[in-house]
Design a protein around this nucleic acid. Sequence first.
DNA 1: TTGTAAGCGTTATCAC
DNA 2: GTGATAACGCTTACAA
Lengths: 361, 361
Amino acid sequence: MPGMVKLGQMERERMSEKRTRRGGEGRIGIRDVARDAGVSVATVSRTLAGDGYPVSDEARRKVLESVKKLNFVPNDLARGLTQSRTNTVGVIVPNLVNLYYARVVIGVEEIAAQNGISIIFCNTNHNIAKREQDINLLLQKRVDGIIICGSGTDYESGSGRLANGNAPFVVLGRNERLDYPSVHADNFRAGYRATQHLVDLGHRQFLFLGGPEKWPDGSDRIAGFKACLAENDIEFQQDMLLFGDFAEENAYQRVLHLGRNFPATAVLAGNDRIALGGMAAVVDLGLRIPDDVAFVGFDNIATSHYLRPSLTTMDMPARLIGAEGMRVLLRIIAGETVASRTVFEADLLVRQSSGGTRLQA
Amino acid sequence: MPGMVKLGQMERERMSEKRTRRGGEGRIGIRDVARDAGVSVATVSRTLAGDGYPVSDEARRKVLESVKKLNFVPNDLARGLTQSRTNTVGVIVPNLVNLYYARVVIGVEEIAAQNGISIIFCNTNHNIAKREQDINLLLQKRVDGIIICGSGTDYESGSGRLANGNAPFVVLGRNERLDYPSVHADNFRAGYRATQHLVDLGHRQFLFLGGPEKWPDGSDRIAGFKACLAENDIEFQQDMLLFGDFAEENAYQRVLHLGRNFPATAVLAGNDRIALGGMAAVVDLGLRIPDDVAFVGFDNIATSHYLRPSLTTMDMPARLIGAEGMRVLLRIIAGETVASRTVFEADLLVRQSSGGTRLQA
DNA sequence: TTGTAAGCGTTATCAC
DNA sequence: GTGATAACGCTTACAA
């Protein structure tokens, strides 16, 4: 009876090969290393784990040799599955074209790399739906934690997975709620100091070229701006404030619209990109910087130092924020308690666009 | 005998709970969903997989209901383990502060997101050792493929994992070898055209402010530059060529060093960041752009349009390269054959820094 | 110090 | 259409 014979063959194959799914030649695994080194899989695992577990030098040597010989690459998926830890965190960024966020990411990556953890990167393009989707993906991938860049609102909305405690997370940027940890700059003080700098230079007619209206970081800067005006007995007028988006072009158009008969002698821009667009427009209107109009920005992106005139700006410590955010996340993952809020000060960098030395001269 | 009683209890617990390792309340899995929905795990899996496998509407409904009710989040680690596919690719970038790479990454991310695949991001800071390490990490994470940004050399060096075929990969940038797929711009032609533009404007005294000496993209641009000079009977002199790094400051210093008695009327910069630094130095030397010195850059980073004078530059299609790179990688993963090389043309954007309209006026 | 074997949470195979 | 159950490749009790 051929049927029975065949069954017997299959049985024997199964016994010896212990592989049913993939024909025979699967990727090389820990078992292969163990066999080659003449030790058990446990010993291989322990050797490679590198924690303090005792392994004889002899065994270790043989294992390492086989690993190299067979070109063994451990499978982190299987590792993650058993350890319920992936050494991976997700980073969600609104927009990488903004050098500010690029710097934040670099800070994050730096600390992550130092701690042997990888980064899954998501770009949302300021799209809240994409962000929800990204969070889902990250949770499915069982990241150890998530870093959300950009001040935004209601992370608990929609899926609510984060606020539900499904994964530890840190917000990099100002946010309204206090019940999850965040790292950001003191935007209020930054706004205040930038304004004070211009006031000290004798300016009375201001324009704040803002970003989006509901942008917490920006709102704080504006609040600082207003507070400083009040402090100096300068009345705030609604038309001193123009909202827009984050990009150069929009700022350029807004400023061009104001025309040569410019309503202010000093412009504060919501960030450096906005400043860049605004300055270009001012130049194109035939006005001089800083003589006719002074500019101050926020962020200190790499290019602002090399503009001519160079851009006076608040040096928002993006990289530092990214790095600290990652450190905080690591602490949370380790089970430590962390400050619900970490705030960094921003330095004022006086450069040509504000003519910072005009009065002193 | 209390000992035996205790043992009996444990046994029973094990039988009912079927969980030995983690006390009891593990994360909710597909089994829990199956139980709650009153179907088998197979049915749950099939429902969630969403491929064409037949599942009765009734079962599907119950499953979906339980999924939502229990807030089930599938575990991609386990998925990846059985499917030997992770829907994740690694992206290795030399430096995110360079907006060029930021744009490339955005292009990659865009196509990736459209295809439901995630990106593990690595920043090497132009450090070759870090890159090797990153590749190791990515292979351990069993990414479906790897995208390496930045033209560099010998990816097969060191570990040799990539060239060994351990994972499909695509290089985004020019490289010497032809035996793996790459996507990049036609840097030679870009260099040629940029130069021709300046020649057409009447320039004869050139300076090429290059990046690092062994930077394939840059070398090609320089080759195009030289070819164009030859074509126009302008003799190339070694001192027309200055190497450096990718950043603004270095370029600034190099140009400042040349002094007011500037050796050229036209400068080609290896990229826009270099141009930015160079232009700042020229201005600081008291020279006018473009009247005394004309500038042309490469990349068309966002800021170059808003400089005053704005920067004439070759519009290297970074985003497009990123997007196409991702598409190529997806094709490789799908088992299709792909072109070993995909090359994009760059457009010349004439702006103020070259005084592009000077002759026509 | 070492080995054995039971998971980890899925998918895929095979039988019904 | 549906359900058991054996992989997937590793870690980690537990036993030796």
